[in-house]
Write a protein that binds this DNA or RNA. Structure first.
Length: 224
DNA sequence: ATTTAGATCCTCT
DNA sequence: GAGGATCTAAATG
């Protein structure tokens, strides 16, 4: 008697945690390119001998002064978004809705305030620690631990102490991984930016078609 | 399957 | 004083 082959993707996923850290130049590329290229890369947080890591499966691009959905819309420069105005390759972490943190990767040269919001990961390492940080029931699937920007920050232990973290040398780094095929990537409008007028329709959310960890609608661009 | 309400507090006007 | 780059549970069709 033969067992049916198991086609369920194994989570946590196997990933190369010895891969090189992404070089600083990676983050100088155009923001939409960085957003797509980040899919599949590994976000790692090492702290006090503990480690949590996840494969990036969903992101959103935010493009500076001209993008009404961005924190830097219209050239606003404040204490909160200061890191977005700085050099590429830093982590921009902010607190929102009274209870959640969101983390972004800053792109482009200093003075060009653009960033990529990380919206979902697939757990790669440190799942027990993620469960403790999330305080979820034991049966919750691993993929749900890091689904959504607020959830992934809690699971990864990322908060405002990480704001400004240098992604080449800080406690939080991003490791290189093979580039995803473009056919594995879908796009849609960004989530939660209805206040941005016509910019809310821009298809600047990118996600891996086959990932179980993607948050929100797995819809491709709707007709305009 | 989709909608709603409530939690909760920092940031900027 | 208002509202948010969110999340969850509960209610509803």
């Amino acid at each position: 008697m033969r067992l049916r082959p198991d086609t369920t993707p194994a989570l946590p996923l196997a990933a190369d945690l010895t891969a090189p850290i992404l070089p600083g130049e990676f983050y100088l590329q155009p923001t939409l390119r960085v957003a797509r290229a980040l899919l599949g890369k590994i976000l790692v947080h090492r702290r006090r001998g503990s480690i949590t890591a996840g494969r990036i499966v969903e992101v959103e691009a935010y493009r500076g002064p001209g993008d009404r959905a961005a924190h830097t819309a219209g050239g606003r420069r404040t204490a909160r978004n200061e890191v977005m105005w700085g050099p590429a390759g830093r982590l921009y972490v902010y607190f929102t809705y009274g209870m959640h943190h969101c983390c972004n990767v800053v792109t482009r040269a200093a003075g060009v305030p653009e960033a990529v919001l990380v919206r979902a990961l697939e757990p790669v390492a440190g799942v027990p620690l993620m469960r403790r940080r999330r305080r979820v029931r034991a049966e919750l699937p691993a993929a749900a631990l890091t689904r959504g920007p607020g959830n992934l920050c809690r699971a990864m232990g990322i908060d405002r102490r990480c704001d400004g973290n240098d992604l080449r040398a800080g406690a939080v780094v991003i490791l290189d991984a093979p580039r995803m095929r473009s056919t594995a990537i879908l796009a849609s409008p960004r989530i939660g930016v209805a206040y941005a007028g016509s910019d809310a329709l821009l298809p600047w959310r990118f996600f891996l078609r086959d990932s179980l960890a993607v948050s929100g609608p797995r819809r491709v661009e709707p007709p305009r």
